[in-house]
Design a protein around this nucleic acid. Structure first.
Lengths: 189, 189
DNA sequence: CCCTCAAACTAACACTTGTTAGTTAGCGTT
DNA sequence: AACGCTAACTAACAAGTGTTAGTTTGAGGG
């Protein structure tokens, strides 16, 4: 159990505030108050407000990229790959509830790292789409517009951070299994 | 074809800016520039920045509430009701692409109207959940956690505004039909 | 020709923003 | 005792914030 540095603590608290009000609405004085110090003192630990956002978003985005790579390199069937992706999202979302909010809602406030983020997101979606297309070609999946399938799955998965905190007892495996049922097999009898 | 008033034009342009950068990051000077006038001139037409947000969010939220009421009062089967709800979201999202962004991302910046908005949203979700629960009881739907079903459908539907603009040719009926297939019947063979 | 009115303008306000500079206090090591 | 390090502080700045007051412009109707 590695001890959290002061910098990590600031970033963690910042992510929580960013989730509640959004990046732009959170001031350095808000963040300082939440940390119990003065705004200027924050700069002993961090470079800038922007830098906090960069750290939060890019670290999670890279985690997703890495996870997708593992899924792609596996020899699983299409449906099994999709289940792995669901599990990936449940895992990352449950471990980064606050950061996921910034990833979803504040990515446009990135500056120097904006293009890098967009390229990660783009590639992720391309890889996701390609898995679905292969599933349709091999008749594992129904012949529905693959973009609609991806959109439906991805928006649900990307919104997990909103919903997970509302569940008192969270069993990550249970949630992933239930989501697999609903997303892959549908809801009707 | 009713002519758009200057006030309506400002609100429409504001919604577009709010979608791109979020409510807090859009200044009255940004909005004025987009309108081709000076910031102070905006106040000949609108009361405050807050008021613009109120108008955007509350009008759409009430549209959803009204639509849900119609669905509830119908004598349709559960599955047919869910299809009506999908159609409702596709319709409202396609007609309010910009406003939907504020509804999803900037509702927390409401002040006087925050509680009213939250009550509308709460009731909407309760009604949605109740339809799903009835569907499970009457064996129209699989016996899966009804909250997960609602969460999955609702997050997909609420994110439509992100995705609709990316589709060159948008046929509202096509989109609703495809979403129904994916959300209700699943994606596997 | 004057009046009205919508819609723009300039100038200014009080306050908030992110950030910097320079300083101080406490603590462990030499 | 002196040093260096961490982490806080006060004070300040320049730019930007939403908003108000008062004024000007131009078009249309009596």
């Amino acid at each position: 159990m590695k001890q959290e540095t002061r910098k990590e603590e600031i970033i963690r608290v910042a992510a929580k505030l960013f989730k509640e009000k959004g990046y732009s609405a959170v001031t350095m004085r808000d963040l300082a108050t939440a940390m119990g110090i003065k705004a200027a003192s924050l700069y002993n630990h961090i470079n800038s407000k922007q830098d906090i956002l960069n750290t939060i978003i890019i670290s999670i985005a890279e985690e997703f990229t890495q996870g997708m790579k593992l899924v792609q390199d596996s020899k699983l069937s299409c449906i099994e790959k999709l289940k792995q992706i669901v599990a990936l999202h449940v895992k990352i979302a449950s471990e980064n509830i606050y950061g996921m909010a910034s990833l979803n809602n504040d990515w446009m406030h990135l500056e120097t790292q904006l293009n890098y983020y967009l390229s990660l997101r783009d590639n992720y979606e391309k890889d996701f789409l390609s898995i679905i297309q292969q599933g349709i070609e091999s008749s594992e999946l129904k012949e529905v517009n693959p973009e609609i399938i991806m959109f439906s799955m991805l928006t649900t998965l990307r919104s997990l951070y909103i919903w997970i905190p509302k569940k008192e007892e969270l069993n990550v495996n249970d949630l992933a299994n239930n989501l697999n049922k609903v997303l892959i097999h549908g809801i009707n009898i």
